[in-house]
Design a protein around this nucleic acid. Sequence first.
DNA 1: GTGGTCTAGACCACC
DNA 2: GTGGTCTAGACCACC
Lengths: 131, 131, 131, 131
Amino acid sequence: MLALTIDPHSPKPVYQQIIDQVKYAVACGRLRAGDRLGSIRDVAVQTRVNRNTVARAYMELEREGVIRSRAGQGSFVSDDTGAAVGKAQARKILTEKTDEMVTQARLFRLDKDEVMELTRQRLDKLGRVSQ
Amino acid sequence: MLALTIDPHSPKPVYQQIIDQVKYAVACGRLRAGDRLGSIRDVAVQTRVNRNTVARAYMELEREGVIRSRAGQGSFVSDDTGAAVGKAQARKILTEKTDEMVTQARLFRLDKDEVMELTRQRLDKLGRVSQ
Amino acid sequence: MLALTIDPHSPKPVYQQIIDQVKYAVACGRLRAGDRLGSIRDVAVQTRVNRNTVARAYMELEREGVIRSRAGQGSFVSDDTGAAVGKAQARKILTEKTDEMVTQARLFRLDKDEVMELTRQRLDKLGRVSQ
Amino acid sequence: MLALTIDPHSPKPVYQQIIDQVKYAVACGRLRAGDRLGSIRDVAVQTRVNRNTVARAYMELEREGVIRSRAGQGSFVSDDTGAAVGKAQARKILTEKTDEMVTQARLFRLDKDEVMELTRQRLDKLGRVSQ
DNA sequence: GTGGTCTAGACCACC
DNA sequence: GTGGTCTAGACCACC
């Protein structure tokens, strides 16, 4: 089962921490299409988080098309993790995230090459894990 | 004075909208080191936002090292917008933001080249505005 | 025997998938009054679904008047698929479903003609299959 | 404030009943872009439903792009109620809803003209309320 | 005042 | 066992 690390004091909501870690695991291939996630109950126990909070994270992941849940069966990584949102919407989401990143990088005095290098680095790390 | 565009119905909190727009203005060179920001009172009037909300945004910008406020004189863009956090901390923040972006891009089925291209694009847009 | 396609990872419960497919087959004429459905056991084997799940779907279909089950003989498409509920009840159910559809269509900015066109299209598709 | 009617014994979840009624009110023009909805607390009291349940309905409505919520301000009808979902996705959702409707109508022995008539009727009712 | 998050605990539906 | 819904009540962030 995927090991999740929760920081209850982080400004980032707990359910969002769960979402981000599951997404990363799927993106890097640690979790693959069809793989079963830990059950809501199990994850709640493992992370010492309330069942409802885990359920909310899973609900959101399903809404975004990353996983699919079924009562009595469990939750599974989706085949097409990007299908839930249209191409235009996806582009908008990514552009916003990229702008946030490059803005912050500029404030930290990174030049273009350094930002490109950092991006390549993180892409490589993501790619190297499995697939 | 930097013109701020506030959407009171946006899900993004007003103070966060102010922060993001000031940061972007500084990152792209529209605002430069030493430039004076509009006073809290003036910005509040211009954007029709409560003075406390503007004050909160300025406080956060100062905490992050983007601006410095001098009592009785106003708020100014900092010389070193990255100095407030250490190099290691800056790297951690940027790495996290980059990871979020590349993770989402992967889920949307973008390949490495497309992510690099998007990053370059947004960097260029940021750079072209002024500096 | 009607070939059912079950997706065990779909958010739609398995029994509901069975119900919907049988209903559609009856509505489009692929199954006609008096036709025998596959036995619960056979359908369970063919779809790799638990027998209880198939039984539940058949029970619901019978409750709605779409099929009739005769002990020892099997389940058959009803002569009058609408008889189980009164005319008023049927009208209420349909009105509700129609309202949901036109409401969502309006939120998606479709005008009346487009909704009428979509409805005609789906009606034609249903009609063309057999009858 | 929009009066909501909740049936706690309906098979339709309470939060879904709230969602459907708000959507209908927006679709028919009873609520218009920019209008403020009742606060989560007020709606909870009026409908005798728990605050969390109302909050969940509002969250879902925001996710679908029908409303926008802001702490300290309230919840407001969105300008572009269809923007949150892509054109292709919207079409898929509507086609599914229409298929459900026409299938059920056929089982109730309505012919094509009657289905078209019913659809026109409900569209007219929706249109007549305000706009 | 407003909405957002989280816990604790219950009960239901599906399998 | 699994996920889904709902209540009750707390605390926080925003304004």
